[in-house]
Design a protein around this nucleic acid. Structure first.
Length: 881
RNA sequence: GCGGGCGUGGUGGAACCGGUAGACACAAGGGACUUAAAAUCCCUCGGCCACAAGCCAUGCGGGUUCGAGUCCCGCCGCCCGCACCA
């Protein structure tokens, strides 16, 4: 192998990512390779990964997320698209305030320092980002537009102010999110959390429930799982609002109770009415009934803790009231208050149909109420059918129900709806068909400092007055103290004191700030015009939007995506852009996991603290510090508590960005969890060196045949051409389908084929050299979206002009994708016994004849004639005996 | 409980529309090179069988089909989301 000798010096040199990666990052920076150019008329492509919270350090989840997105971005660039691939910071939020409280640091300073540190980390990953478009939501330049849009939306009736219940921490004097309430106590103070009524700002997202639901059908490039989660969250149900007339009583002046039901067909099986503990009538009755008041208080105590209780027992309190049975004249139904009835769903009151609802059944059994079956399962005997421990919720025929008897459930629902529509209670139709949604309005008020100020002023004379747009932004003060509980904005000596913009008299600023979900509900829009004086530039924004491919964690599948879908619509209504759906393609990646290790005394050990060895074929962990064996535990999501985290910085320093990126893309399908392993990273690193050697070994040939002249391919050259062109086709298809693990496998196969082929170019017929030259060049282009630094280095080594990140994705010659022969497996009774290679499109009879002449087939037939021969042209042959 | 998803070698995973199960990688074992190690290269690698032939294998049990990892029915197990939603 004469060529190999010539290249020895080259191949001895190991590829050094530590040296090359910063080099290429600087080149890309200097050449502004990934900056969107004005006036670029090519087809646009917008790829976006969820922007990070600036905690100070990137984690492996970020590495995976941004590695995935960068492949798409670089691939689409190579495909000739004008690619927008920006990055920013979800920079408001609670951790900054915690840092302020715990370390006395100003939230703004803390956040901006973190952004600096994380930006440097992201840059070391070699991502093809347009950093000129960077935004941080905590900067007035960003949030002033959010305030302006809030005012527009307020004016358009999309924002409202109303009372709402919150979790109030009486020690920290702050509102807690549900996940900050642990066993009914505040997560920091440990004080019992109270339910308080506060006046809060809301976006009227529930008005859009139907629209947000039906538009999900059009989101065909979203994971089915996410679409289902959104549908469930919106929670549409169709039913009947039904009025029950109260029997006369001195306890209340109320004359009727309104319930919501999705099963009006079971009305003849009704056995009780149940009110929510929060129902207005409950409150009224409790005022004159201490025992009821105590029952309600008990329900509230359970309220927050119930989440942990698997199955709270059904409990009720009989109010002493009763209502007229709406279809059984002369009969009445008792009215209870029950702990399982929710106030914020439906009307806060239900009728119990014990035979056909499990909860109602449990309740009825407990309080000795009648259980009347009214739906007969198919084939059951109406004389003997009874309800035992299980309510019957399946299909069937209505019985025991007078004029509904014999109808199907659906028919009965219609009939009974018509029946009640024509009757009147309290002068209203007794029954109205109703559609209910679980989705509630989006409360955005937070009693916190580090968020976007809500731009309104409260004036005693004028009420709630919007801050005039000319006075925006309402900027957060820097001089805040966190020395006492509560909202620092509230304690600030001057900030909240302003004159009313309408009447000029002293007034008070709103001190609540916005939920950080608002910040992230439009950042993807801001990226389309990040420096504009207005929130958007509609021509630019509409040209870029929607995001072609959005990538992020499944933990944001519901709220962030739903709020963003709502906010985009709200921005359309207020004239800031012209579309409804922000994300055309959505992809949710899996988590990064790692083994856990535990010392003998139960301490969690981090991966750096253990050494894993093979002892008699078994993996055994040793704690480095003590030399004692440690236990290898389960594979878990990387977390601080289990100490199984891997620091991306260490990986990037040790192996380089390309290796980390390659590992993240290999093996595991991106939507599934990936297990980070030392062995896997080593493998990725070895492959990087292998490519480098391969390029080194073939560079002399490649230089000679850089034009890739076609010549006449001999058999070997043709075979390689086919492999190369197929790989290009496959890798392209796999990247477009986000099947990166398959693309990686394809690249391995190509590299294997090329490595075998290097030996074949001696004594170097031109056609073979040209095929090899092409193959190596293509290999470099195929790895370029995944290992961009290595690819640039190879590209340069091969003597190619320009940067590989600017090179066009290679064209596929379809001639190399087709074969003129085809190998058919030959089965006998569906089991493979042999194979034949025939010309493509061979006649069926010729194939049959050939098959029967095969030795293994003849042996199986034992001289008998086959019953049948199935020939699927160019696919398979099956001989049936 | 409801909704969704998934069960394939020692491991991660391939397998298109029902057509050669296990691509590719990791781990492991053996060999070459080396004073030695690392790196690299070559070979083996689902099970039974000494080999070949053959048989058994895609969670379990049925079914449809010339042919099932793939489709249908019934179980079992795991994961995720929502959860007293009337």
């Amino acid at each position: 192998m004469p060529l190999k000798d010539a290249e020895t010096s080259m191949s001895l040199e190991r590829y050094n990512p530590r040296e090359m990666e910063p080099h290429w990052q600087k080149v890309w920076d200097d050449q502004q390779s990934f900056v969107v150019k004005d006036g670029d008329t090519r087809e646009r492509y917008y790829v976006l990964e969820m922007f990070p919270y600036p905690s100070g350090r990137i984690h492996m989840g970020h590495v995976r997320n941004y590695a995935l997105g960068d492949v798409v971005a670089r691939y689409q660039r190579a495909r000739g698209k004008n690619v927008l691939h920006p990055m920013g910071w979800d920079a408001f939020g609670l951790p900054a305030e915690n840092a302020a409280i715990e370390r006395g640091m100003n939230p703004g300073i803390w956040t901006r320092q973190n952004i600096e540190a994380m930006r440097a980390q992201l840059k070391s990953m070699g991502l093809s980002l347009d950093w000129t478009r960077e935004v941080a939501t905590c900067e007035p330049d960003y949030y002033r537009h959010q305030q302006a849009m809030f005012l527009d939306m307020l004016e358009a009736g999309l924002v409202t102010r109303k009372q709402s219940k919150v979790n109030w921490d009486p020690v920290d004097m702050t509102v807690l999110a549900n996940e900050q309430v642990i066993d009914g106590k505040g997560w920091r103070s440990g004080a019992p959390v109270e339910q308080r009524e506060l006046t809060q700002w809301f976006f009227r997202i529930s008005d859009f429930a139907e629209e947000l639901l039906s538009a999900i059908d059009g989101l065909t490039e979203w994971p089915e799982k996410v679409r289902t989660m959104q549908r469930n969250w919106i929670g549409k149900s169709e039913g009947l609002k039904l009025l029950f007339a109260l029997e006369a009583t001195e306890k209340t002046a109320t004359t009727s109770i309104e319930v919501f039901t999705t099963r009006p067909d079971t009305i003849f099986g009704a056995s009780f009415i149940a009110l929510s503990p929060d129902h207005p009538l409950t409150g009224e009755l409790a005022a004159g009934d201490p025992a009821l008041a105590e029952f309600v208080a008990e329900c509230h105590r359970h309220g927050t803790a119930t989440e942990t209780l698997e199955k709270a027992e059904k409990q009720g309190y009989f109010t002493g009231l009763s209502v007229a049975h709406p279809v059984k004249p002369g009969q009445t139904l008792p009215v209870y208050v029950a702990n399982f009835v929710l106030m914020d769903y439906g009307t806060g009151a239900i009728f119990g149909s014990a035979g056909h609802d499990q909860r109602d059944l449990e309740f009825a059994r407990k309080y000795g109420l009648p259980v009347i079956p009214v739906v007969l399962p198919p084939g059951a005997d109406p004389q003997t059918f009874t309800i035992g421990e299980e309510a019957y919720t399946d299909t069937g025929t209505i019985f025991n129900s007078a004029f509904l008897d014999g109808l199907s459930i659906e028919e009965a629902k219609k009939t009974i709806a018509d029946h009640f529509a024509s009757l009147r209670v309290d002068g209203r139709p007794q029954g109205t068909v109703e559609v209910n949604y679980r989705l509630r309005d989006w409360g955005v008020s937070r009693q916190r400092y580090w968020g976007c100020p809500i731009p309104v002023i409260h004036c005693e004379a004028c009420g709630t007055v919007p801050v005039p747009k000319k006075d925006l932004p309402v900027v957060l003060p820097d001089d805040v103290a966190f020395d006492k509980p509560g909202n620092p904005l509230d304690h600030h000596p001057t900030w909240k004191h302003v004159d009313c913009p309408q009447c000029g008299r002293p007034a008070r600023r709103e001190t609540d700030t916005m939920d950080t979900f608002v910040d992230s509900s439009w950042y993807f829009v801001r990226f389309t015009a990040p420096h504009a004086d207005t929130p958007t530039v509609p021509e630019e924004t509409n040209a870029w939007m929607p995001v072609d491919q959005y990538i992020g964690g499944v933990e944001h599948a519901i709220l962030h995506l739903l709020y963003s879908r709502f906010f985009t619509r709200a921005m359309k209504i207020t004239g800031h852009l012209g579309l409804d759906e922000p994300f055309k393609g959505m992809f949710t990646q899996g988590m990064v996991t790692h083994e856990t290790y535990k010392a003998g005394d139960g301490r969690w050990l981090s991966p750096e603290e253990v050494r894993v060895e093979l002892v008699e074929g078994e993996r055994q962990a040793i704690e480095v510090a003590t030399g004692r064996p440690a236990q290898i535990g389960s594979i878990e999501k990387i977390s601080k508590s289990k100490r199984n985290g891997i620091d991306p910085d260490e990986i990037l320093k040790t192996y380089g960005a390309d290796t980390a990126r390659w590992f993240m893309l290999s093996d595991s399908p991106p939507e599934r969890d990936v297990q980070w392993t030392e062995a896997g990273v080593e493998g990725a690193s070895r492959f990087q060196q292998r490519i480098w050697r391969l390029v080194g070994e073939s560079v002399a040939i490649a230089e000679q045949f850089s034009e890739i002249e076609a010549g006449v391919d001999d058999e070997d050259a043709l075979a390689l051409r086919k492999i190369v062109h197929r790989a290009v086709k496959q890798v392209g298809d796999d990247i477009e389908g986000l099947r990166f693990n398959r693309a990686v496998a394809q690249i391995y196969e190509l590299a294997n084929a090329l490595a075998r082929y290097v030996g074949l170019v001696s004594p170097a017929p031109a056609a073979r050299c040209a095929a090899l030259a092409e193959g190596v060049e293509r290999l470099v282009q195929l790895i370029a979206p995944m290992m961009p630094h290595l690819a640039e280095t190879c590209w340069q080594t091969l003597g190619k002009q320009g940067l590989v990140c600017d090179a066009a994705w290679p064209a596929v010659d379809p001639a190399y994708l087709v074969d003129d022969t085809v190998t058919l497996p030959v089965q006998v009774n569906g089991k493979r016994r042999a194979e034949i290679t025939v010309a493509k499109g061979s006649a069926q009879t010729a194939v049959e004849e050939l098959v029967l002449s095969l030795e293994p087939i003849a042996r199986m037939l034992e001289g008998k004639a086959p019953k049948k021969i199935v020939v699927v042209p160019d696919r398979i042959v099956n001989v049936v005996v």
